[in-house]
């Protein structure tokens, strides 16, 4: 595979071949992550800036670790320490960062399309979208895919159910694209008030009932209820949501024996998922976190290679 992209902005842009190439590379990096000395010199002298306009300790740490294990110089730039609070615009910030000549920017932003705008203005810097508003979170979908592939070897024909606030979820969008491209069929499950416009046109089945939605599913992906993103709540109370759309010990009895339960984290225990299930036998939630580092190493590595190629 030739990987020649300048940026990773969304799964929607990637071909199946590219997704497979990234995951193959990520699997190789898994080996590095099991060594006593978890570091290779590959990206020595390259600079990666994590530009996080929205807080996310977990994703940022994962990217930071990925960069450092490849020997890149990794700098974190978070909104609390940035000039954004002083009224500087995204583009001013971007231009200033670009003037420091980083090789790769990893961007998290609460506005959809922020990474696209950065990528358009930064001619010689690669941009990785680490989550933009309710749009996409490509590295999350790739690490989810890697987690499934490690257990199931093949994704073609699998049935995936994504449960929760589809409307506000970038994880849902990236995973819908990713699983579909890899040959799985995807259902989305939740109350209609949490479904975005014309969601069926993405080629998914829509279920408003949890039990029906997860019946026969090989993978159940529970989304985090993001109270902070919902001004007027699309459901009456957490208690009611949890009762009707949360995964509990009763509902998992109906699951297939080899079903996998995933969650992008952080888990609201007792809301979308029963405390016992997150740590239970179906759960691969911590594998997701482990694989996240390898996937992000692969992205940094492939983009660096592509940069060299495009010189």
């Amino acid at each position: 595979m030739k990987f020649t992209r300048k940026n990773i902005l969304g799964i929607a842009d990637l071909s199946r071949e590219e997704i497979e190439g990234i995951l193959e590379t990520a699997l190789m990096f898994s080996e590095v992550n099991t060594r006593a000395i978890k570091k290779v010199p590959t990206l020595r002298g390259r600079t990666v800036i994590n530009v996080f306009f929205e807080n996310s300790t977990r994703t940022r740490t994962s990217f930071e670790l990925a960069g450092k294990r490849l020997s890149a110089d990794v700098v974190n730039f978070t909104s609390s320490s940035s000039a954004l609070s002083k009224g500087e615009s995204l583009l001013d910030t971007a231009k200033n960062l670009a003037a420091m000549q980083p090789d790769i920017l990893v961007c998290r932003h609460s506005c959809a399309g922020a990474s696209h705008i950065l990528a358009r203005y930064l001619q010689s810097t690669s941009v990785i979208n680490a989550g933009d508003g309710s749009h996409e979170h490509p590295s999350q979908a790739l690490l989810d895919m890697m987690t499934v592939l490690k257990v199931r070897k093949k994704v073609d024909g699998l049935r995936v159910a994504i449960v929760g606030d589809i409307s506000h979820s970038r994880v849902a969008r990236s995973n819908i694209y990713c699983f579909q491209k890899m040959g799985a069929s995807v259902s989305v499950v939740g109350p209609a008030s949490m479904m975005p416009s014309a969601i069926k046109d993405l080629g998914v089945d829509v279920h408003y009932n949890l039990k029906q939605g997860i019946e026969g599913a090989d993978i159940i992906m529970m989304l985090r209820i993001q109270m902070e993103r919902i001004k007027q709540s699309p459901f009456p109370s957490l208690r009611e949501y949890s009762r009707y759309f949360g995964l509990n010990l009763e509902t998992i009895k109906t699951l297939k024996k080899d079903a996998l339960i995933m969650h992008p984290g952080p888990v609201n225990r007792g809301v979308e998922i029963d405390p016992g299930i997150a740590d239970g036998p179906y759960s691969v939630i911590l594998d997701q976190v482990t694989n996240g580092v390898a996937v992000r190493m692969a992205l940094l590595y492939l983009l660096s290679n592509a940069q060299s190629m495009n010189l």
Partner: peptide, 23 residues
């Protein structure tokens, strides 16, 4: 051993960006 991660010429290794197994 796959030596791709240790190359001194990442900038010219365009033909094989895909890593192979190190075991």
């Amino acid at each position: 051993l796959d030596i791709n991660l240790y190359r001194d010429d990442l900038s010219q290794s365009s033909d094989k960006p895909i890593l192979k197994e190190t075991k």
